[in-house]
């Protein structure tokens, strides 16, 4: 019985520890020149094709792209900026928190 309790405690501790390490990150990129659906589509396609990206949402009103990354993955801000520049737009700011 003691062994069973010990096993359960250890299992829960390991599982909790690994769950705590799994973090999916969200980044917000504020973009200049974002004025129409074609612009939104360009950014969606250019950034969305990266393996680390789980989902992307483009908000035309606030001119912000919300990028959700897969667990324990992300793109450096410099890479995000480059991708946005490659799509023909410029980055105003990249933050981890929405304004």
């Amino acid at each position: 019985m003691k062994k069973l309790i010990l096993f359960v405690v250890v299992f829960c501790a390991i599982h909790r520890s690994s769950s705590a390490e799994d973090k999916s990150l969200t980044v917000y990129a504020y973009v200049n020149g974002l004025v129409c659906d074609f612009c939104a589509r360009a950014l969606e396609m250019t950034i969305g094709k990266k393996d680390a990206v789980k989902a992307i949402n483009v908000n035309l009103k606030d001119k912000v792209i919300t990028i959700n990354f897969k667990d324990n993955q992300r793109l450096e801000d410099s890479v995000i900026s480059q991708l946005i520049n490659d799509a023909g737009y410029t980055v105003r700011e990249i933050t981890d928190e929405k304004k």
Partner: peptide, 11 residues
């Protein structure tokens, strides 16, 4: 595209 001007609210 020779030149693009990207502004916060316009292009």
């Amino acid at each position: 595209l020779i030149k693009r001007w990207n502004k916060p609210e316009s292009q």
